[in-house]
């Protein structure tokens, strides 16, 4: 399969596909971060995670329309406002869902899965009724369009770079929050021993609620970033949910480093294979490899040793 390309061409192919893989990596990682908090830390399967993401995307789209219509002067920075809004809206919905539904189901993980699937169907239909079945795309501000030429064959899109930068910042923020803040310490304490954490005065219910909310909020930011590189439709969330779960499981559920490593591996493998094979076969091979490795090593790449 390499025969018909020269060495220089092959290098640029790998660089270009590698870069496309990096963008995919950013998207996977952003989506998986929220899930790594919710599933990895709390053990809750949220099948509606994709829909929380799409909510963020729609919030961004509404902001884009609003700013282009009423506040054209602020268009260059609307994106940052949209992202904050996306975080708040998705996070608020997450807190509400936790309070109404999830907290009653902590002892029945399989049932949580079914209930959140129901929630995802409702949200999908809600988006379809409110925003219409067609996909919508946002208008990017001028500075985000175009690409940087690196050599005469290799070009790098600015919006891709922006998404990558954003992912880096959010990942660092999550890491700091989890491992350096008081809240993160409480979350980890609740994960490791709920009863004991409660006994030393941590309000475990409150920690659960805000953990779920923050996970959903990060999904909202992911959705917001997602609009920069693709369009959004009511069922877009469902397309990614399996990939996202695999990323988190493959990485080893409770490990942030594992999530990053597995998002990187999966996205790079898929993106580089996509150039040489057809897209569907690349995806099948990647997923098969992941499932195969998980069958051999069910605990995932990185394991956090916790006594349960």
């Amino acid at each position: 399969m390499f025969g018909e390309y020269s060495l220089g061409e092959l290098t640029s192919i790998f660089v270009m596909q590698g870069f496309a893989g990096l963008i995919l990596f950013s998207v996977f990682l952003l989506m998986a971060l929220g899930l790594a908090i919710i599933f990895g830390q709390m053990g809750v399967i949220n099948m509606a995670h994709g829909e929380f993401m799409i909510l963020g995307a729609y919030v961004t789209w509404m902001c884009s329309t609003f700013f282009h219509g009423y506040l054209p002067a602020l268009v260059p920075i609307y994106f940052f406002i949209a992202m904050i809004l996306a975080f708040l809206v998705s996070g608020a919905l997450g807190v509400a869902v936790e309070w109404l539904m999830i907290r009653r189901l902590y002892k029945r993980p399989l049932d949580t899965l079914l209930a959140t699937w129901g929630l995802s169907l409702i949200l999908q239909q809600f988006y379809r009724s409110v925003f219409g079945p067609r996909e919508v795309g946002v208008e990017l501000p001028q500075w985000m369009l175009g690409s940087l030429p690196v050599t005469d064959v290799i070009e790098i899109q600015i919006n891709g770079l922006f998404v990558m930068a954003l992912t880096t910042i959010i990942t660092i923020a999550v890491a700091v929050m989890m491992y350096r803040s008081r809240w993160g310490m409480q979350v980890r304490a609740v994960v490791q021993n709920r009863v004991m954490a409660g006994a030393v005065g941590i309000n475990t219910e409150k920690v659960d609620r805000y953990t779920f909310g923050i996970g959903c909020g990060i999904a909202g930011i992911a959705g917001s970033a997602f609009t920069m590189i693709g369009s959004t439709g009511p069922t877009a969330g469902q397309l990614y949910i399996v990939d996202t779960f695999l990323v988190v499981v493959f990485g080893g559920a409770a490990s942030l480093a594992g999530t990053i490593a597995s998002a990187f591996t999966i996205s790079q493998a898929q993106s580089i294979m996509e150039f040489f094979l057809s897209g569907s076969i690349a995806k099948v091979l990647t997923l098969l490899a992941v499932v195969g490795i998980l069958m051999l090593r069910p605990q995932g790449l990185f394991v956090l040793k916790v006594r349960r």
Partner: peptide, 21 residues
């Protein structure tokens, strides 16, 4: 438990992509 559920779901997704592709 949930891991089994997720993996069987992933296999269903793989099979669909394979059949369609």
């Amino acid at each position: 438990g949930v891991y089994f559920a997720i993996i069987t779901q992933a296999i269903a997704a793989i099979l669909t992509i394979l059949i369609v592709g």
